[in-house]
Amino acid sequence: MTTVSSTQMSRTSQPRRSSRARRNFLWGLFFTSPAIIGLLLFVAYPVLASLYYSFTSYSFFGDFKWIGLVNYVDLISDDNWWMSLGNTVYILIFSVPLGIILALALALLLNIKTRIQAIYRTIFYIPSIMPIVAASVVWSYVMNPQYGILNNMLRAVGVDGPGWLSSIYWSKPAFILISLWGVGNLMIILLAGLQDVPRDLHDAAQVDGANVWERFFHVTLPFLSPHLLFALVTGLIAGFQYFTPVYVLTNGNGDPAGSALIAPLYLYQNAFRYFKVGYASAIAWVLFIIIVICTALVFRFVGKRVYYGGA
C-alpha cells in the first residue's frame, strides 16, 4: 500500500487553492464592477480633469489652451477671492466650535435616563435629515426682519432685531446660526461615545470626592476625545464646503455687498456664471490644499492629545 507524503499533497493542493483564489477574485471584480466603474467615471475622472483644467483657459463654450500657472497667479491678485476666503474662515472659526459645543450639550442632556428619552432624541435629530434647500427656505422666513419669528422673539424682550440676511454686519452671524441647525448627526456620534465611558471610573472618582465638573473634565472628556477629534476634522472639511444655504438665501450672489460671498460660492460663480472653468478648477484645488494643510495641523497639534484608552 503506497502512502503520499504531506509535501506531495501540499504541492497538488496548492494549484487548486490558487485557481480557486483567482476565480473568487474574478467573481469579486465582476460583482463590484458597477461600483468601480462609477467611482472611476464620477470621482476619479472629474478630479483628474479638474486638475488638468486648472492649468488651462477652458470654458464650456470654446477651445481651451494650456496656460500653466496663470490661474493660480491670478488668484493672488483677486480681491474677490481673498474676500470669499476671509468670509469662509470667519464662518468656519465660529461655526465649528459652536457646533461641537452644542452637539456635546445635547448629547449630555439626551444621555440622562428619562421615560421619553427616545422622543427627545428623535426631535433633536430630525433637523439634520431635512433637505438643506427646504431648511434654508424656512430660515429665510425665520430671519425676516419684519415678520420673522426670531425678531419677534427679540421684540418681546425689548430688543430690536437686526436685518440678518440683509445686513453686511449680521449676514455671516446669520449663516453661523443656520449652520448649527444640523448638529444632530454629530450629537448621535457623541451620544454613542458617552455611552462607552466606563461607569466604574465615574463611581471611583465620585468616591474620591470629585464633583460633577471634575468628573466631566477628567473622566468623560478623555474618553470622548477621539469623537471630538473626528468632529473637528469633519467640521473643518464641511466648513470649507459650506455652500447650499448661502446660495439659496443670497440667490447665488453672496450679498449684501459680498459679505456672504464664500469660497465655494465664488467657485460656483466662476464655473457656471462666468464659465471660467479653468479658473474655477484652480480655486477648487487651492481649497483642497488648504483643507489638507488644516487637517494635517489638527492631527499634528491636537491628534497627539487624544486618549484612545477607551477604544
Rank of each mutant, 00 (worst) to 15 (best):
W164R: 04
F60T: 12
S54R: 08
S50I: 08
L106S: 03
Y72G: 08
F124K: 00
D160T: 13
G99A: 12
L221H: 12
S281L: 09
Y242V: 03
W170H: 11
F299H: 10
V219S: 04
I149F: 10
F25R: 10
S50F: 12
V73A: 15
V138K: 03
R22D: 07
S19V: 13
S5V: 05
W81M: 11
L236D: 06
A135E: 06
Y125P: 00
V302M: 09
G161M: 09
L265A: 11
S50A: 15
K276E: 15
N24A: 13
P97G: 11
F230V: 10
M187H: 02
P226I: 05
V73F: 05
I188H: 04
L229H: 04
A311E: 15
I126M: 04
P264T: 05
T234A: 10
I100A: 04
S179V: 01
P34M: 06
K113D: 11
T56W: 05
L98M: 15
V142W: 00
L51V: 11
V302S: 05
S77M: 11
S225R: 02
F175T: 02
V157M: 08
F275N: 11
P198C: 08
A282T: 14
L150R: 01
F243W: 01
L194E: 01
Y274T: 14
M143N: 00
I262Y: 04
A263F: 07
R300N: 09
T295V: 15
I290M: 11
S171Q: 00
N80R: 15
K113N: 12
I289Q: 01
A271Q: 14
F217C: 02
I293M: 07
F299I: 10
W139P: 02
N185Q: 08
S50C: 14
S225H: 08
L221W: 13
S281N: 09
H202V: 09
S140H: 03
Q206E: 13
G86N: 12
N211Q: 11
L75C: 08
I283N: 08
F243A: 01
G258A: 01
A263M: 13
L191N: 00
P245D: 00
V277W: 06
L287R: 10
R115G: 05
Y52P: 00
T244E: 08
P173Q: 08
Y242T: 01
F299L: 13
K113H: 13
N144E: 07
W285I: 03
Y307I: 07
I116H: 14
I262C: 10
F175G: 01
N87A: 07
L221Q: 04
L249W: 06
Y53T: 04
T88N: 04
T2L: 14
F42V: 12
L297S: 10
A192E: 04
V43A: 09
N151Q: 02
F216M: 07
Q195P: 00
T12P: 06
T7Y: 13
V70N: 15
H218L: 13
A44K: 09
L229K: 06
A134Y: 08
I126P: 01
N111R: 03
L75Y: 05
